[in-house]
Design a protein around this nucleic acid. Sequence first.
DNA 1: CTGAAAGCGCTAACAT
DNA 2: ATGTTAGCGCTTTCAG
Lengths: 343, 343
Amino acid sequence: MASPTIKDVAKSANVSIATVSRVLNHSNTVKIPTQKRVLEAMDILGYNRNEVARSLKFRHTKTIGIIAPELSNIFFMEVVEAMERCLAPHGYSLIITSSNDSVEEEKRKLQIFIERNVDGIVVMPAGAEGQHFLTKALSKIPLVMVDRCIEGLKVDFIETDSRYGVHQMIIALKHEGHKRIGYIGGDLSIHTAHERLFGYLAAMKEQGLPVENRFVYHQDAMTQASGRYLIKQVLQEIDCPDAFFIANDSLHLGATIQAIEMLSASQLDQLVFASFDYLSYAPLLKLCHYAVAQPSDMIGEEVANLLLERLSGNWNDYPKHIMLRPEIKVVRANGGVPYPMSN
Amino acid sequence: MASPTIKDVAKSANVSIATVSRVLNHSNTVKIPTQKRVLEAMDILGYNRNEVARSLKFRHTKTIGIIAPELSNIFFMEVVEAMERCLAPHGYSLIITSSNDSVEEEKRKLQIFIERNVDGIVVMPAGAEGQHFLTKALSKIPLVMVDRCIEGLKVDFIETDSRYGVHQMIIALKHEGHKRIGYIGGDLSIHTAHERLFGYLAAMKEQGLPVENRFVYHQDAMTQASGRYLIKQVLQEIDCPDAFFIANDSLHLGATIQAIEMLSASQLDQLVFASFDYLSYAPLLKLCHYAVAQPSDMIGEEVANLLLERLSGNWNDYPKHIMLRPEIKVVRANGGVPYPMSN
DNA sequence: CTGAAAGCGCTAACAT
DNA sequence: ATGTTAGCGCTTTCAG
């Protein structure tokens, strides 16, 4: 009834459990005939090796724990998908869990990972708080953060180069003739929101473009609802900018939908967006001229490789900070003006 | 250096490991002072319970293995997210993996789950082949299939009621005055593609609408690229339908983008879509009048509950087939005609 | 080339 | 109320 163990196989093949273990681990010190007997016994019994027992013995589980603020975030799941492609061939499985955007839940999930003896952890942190990453138990487990980092926390960290992306967007917009470029983003406690705003500010300054406080919007989470709300505020202003840099896909989606609802066709023609993120439905975001495509595959690969490095005991360059350059997409340049792939 | 075990705690608190185990498991047979000593020892040593060891002892791991054709499928990840909400409170963790749309890889991942002693498995199968779900080892592990099932396979299965959804779409389209309604779908070996086509055929017949073979398109996977390709074929026909039911979001996206590229504004006004799936960017699919929103949360909950039921040893109604009714969305009805929420 | 036995960390019967 | 011990399934010296 219960699953057969090496003991059962041993009995059935008339050998000791040690021998069974040997053929299981391809130790070539087993005589061919015995080996065959063992293999046959395994086959007829339907034996499967028990990873739990091995994990206990080896003190590693060949699992990586992953925590994301939400699982239905395409960007992050693309990263995870790439990670799995790299990690699975090395025998790792992924335990994936959501923090539901709550630091409390993040803590709880972290504790579970520790108890489950995961070999490594990757997290996209929920908040700006990170003391819970500093426990004694965690100090023995490779941990890499993705996309968002926590101020002052010394851990491996991999992200998209936000400032580069924003910079390119501002240049492109300026090249189209726009001078007064607004900003729509989110709460600064999130790392990416912070980086994108400051990238915008820096690029505007560098390009000699004026920044008006009343056209820089960045409250709350970067959601579709917030995008709708913020663009509505902006459009109600008199004399508002005709171009905006928008900090992510959800805001962009919200802003586009709201603008289409509010404006006439001719007014719509006067509005142009450039934004972070480039998803499957990008061609439908009709106000969008330029976009920054996150290198999610590359991020996933880098995370996996860094993890593998740490797992193999190499901590030379710890803590490592990797910034990956995003791809710039020209969705529809104005009047066929070629985009200046400068830099 | 290594993580402290109950042995270390026992020594430090001057008790036996059994006592430590007792306080760990809230057995109230331990005197308060001893209990306090143990708790203190745990605290100063930074003890964490080892789930691997417990798993070996208990012969269960409190993990559920999940296999999807791809991880960046929002619908499926929404289902998973809902599952986690239900399962986490019961102590379960989710091991999530991708079959990359390959039956071979699905087999491999299944084997890994068996070796890892997962307590339950949920899979959205990659293909139409399912012999590998019938092994001896698998017969002891609760398995539930989601969204797609395999012909003739006796397992628990939960899906959206495709035929109901399609039926509503056809009625709505007819109510707008359309008579010649085309179909854009995918390869019939996939369960959902099959159901949606036959739902379309049945509904058309029931409504007394003519089905012309040359306006029923269903080759290949249901991808964006295929959507572009198929609508292109259709639009090149002379005298083609002005309304289409489209079988999923990716096809819909592709068809919309392609149509916008190919047609003039006035031609576009003559084209209307109704489709399966209703995602965040639905308002941007400007040809869409009606959509079927998958009840992903409900599916996740049902999967979790069924799993919990099986895990608790209740196999009464096995194999169970649950069909969940999707929500019908009126995206933009023609001429303000109210949608007939008939049935 | 193969077997016996210890031990990974924990639980639970059995003793005391 | 607490301690002793066997055993979960496996790997790995150490003997033979």
